[in-house]
């Protein structure tokens, strides 16, 4: 059992007027990969660093595996962390980079050797143990950083945007590797990212954060299918959800919808239909191969409405296209509170 629980955790930096995290609770079940996602400055990294013990907790309680860790040093918390810039020790070999934490714990030499060798094989680093970090590629350095986390066999892995220094192709590959590794080891993990695609693909539990607070917790599919707020609706999903006033699409708005409501329709839920209620003046068509993204205008609206359709659907700028949306594709939000209605 190595669940992580945060109770009413607060963070106020000295000198700051408003708290970075005004009070937040979160339960992470043992073996789960929990992704914290949000725009930069939303407090997700601060939260992770508080769990790691690199930031002090202003108030509240953090417990790892049932043990209160607020006042423990990072090394005593039984966690390991993967940093954005890898943070490998440049003057040590790959082997020593992975072994350093174990040596500091006074582990016997042959046990260290066994664990490092095992992790190296798992990560495909077995030929590189004698090299220095500067002799490795970005992806290999990332794997060394992972190896350093694994050999400790900790209660939890903490990932702080570990993929943001990799190029796009490698990022997808490494993402899969991290997922695979975490599923094999079943180690409780917290993963911080600002990339919603990374968040969706990796998470068992997705936590969307904004301004130091949790907007929504759920599985990626729950969050995608039933966004709890306008913020989540706009943040998760790419291209983002279209948000329209009911007056623009009266036939799609439920009769009960209040005047200040907003209707949300994902671009993927926009289905071309000859008699559909949404008539778009097509401005730009982006062809992505399998799908095309159509940017168009509704009469009387300032911003574009986006539709994602199969590339077989004929679409040209200047034409008017009609779309409908199936009932479960229409989301209703309160425009004043930003919360979901119904």
């Amino acid at each position: 059992m190595s669940d992580i629980s945060l109770r009413d955790v607060r963070k106020v930096y000295s000198g700051a007027e408003a708290p970075t995290i005004p009070g937040l609770s979160l339960e992470i079940v043992s073996g789960e990969l929990c992704v914290l996602v949000g725009p930069s400055g939303c407090g997700k990294s601060t939260l992770l660093r508080m769990v790691a013990g690199l930031e002090e907790v202003s108030d509240g309680e953090i417990a790892i595996a049932g043990r209160r860790v607020n006042d423990l040093e990072p090394a005593e918390r039984d966690i390991s962390m993967v940093f954005q810039n890898y943070a490998l020790y440049p003057h040590m070999t790959v082997f020593n980079n992975m072994a350093y934490g174990l040596k500091n714990r006074g582990m016997p030499k042959d046990e260290i050797r066994r664990r490092v060798d095992e992790a190296a094989v798992m990560l495909g680093l077995d030929g590189f143990l004698a090299r220095r970090p500067r002799e490795l590629s970005g992806g290999q350095r990332q794997r060394v950083a992972m190896g350093r986390a694994i050999v400790r066999e900790p209660a939890a892995f903490l990932f702080d945007e570990p993929l943001s220094n990799l190029d796009a192709k490698l990022r997808v590959k490494t993402r899969v590797e991290i997922r695979d590794l975490q599923q094999r080891l079943r180690t409780t993990s917290i993963y911080v990212t600002h990339d919603q695609q990374e968040a969706m693909t990796l998470a068992d539990k997705l936590v969307v954060m904004n301004a130091g607070q949790i907007e929504q917790i759920g599985t990626p599919i729950e969050v995608y299918e039933r966004p709890a707020s306008l913020f989540v609706a706009g943040f998760i999903g790419s291209p983002p959800m279209n948000l329209l006033p009911p007056s623009a699409v009266p036939s799609l708005a439920p009769a009960s919808a209040p005047e200040h409501a907003l209707i949300g329709i994902r671009p993927e839920s926009m289905v071309p239909a000859d008699d559909g209620p949404i008539a778009l003046d097509v401005r730009v068509v982006e062809r992505l191969g399998a799908t095309s993204t159509i940017h168009g205008r509704l009469p009387g609206l300032e911003s574009d409405v986006i539709a994602s359709v199969p590339s077989t659907v004929p679409a040209d700028p200047g034409r008017t296209m009609r779309f409908s949306s199936p009932g479960d594709g229409v989301h209703l939000f309160d425009g004043r509170t930003g919360r979901r209605l119904g």
Partner: peptide, 14 residues
């Protein structure tokens, strides 16, 4: 020297 290196060392129990 990057702060992350210091933090990694703290987590490594140095």
């Amino acid at each position: 020297v990057p702060d992350e290196l210091t933090e990694a060392a703290r987590i490594d129990g140095a």
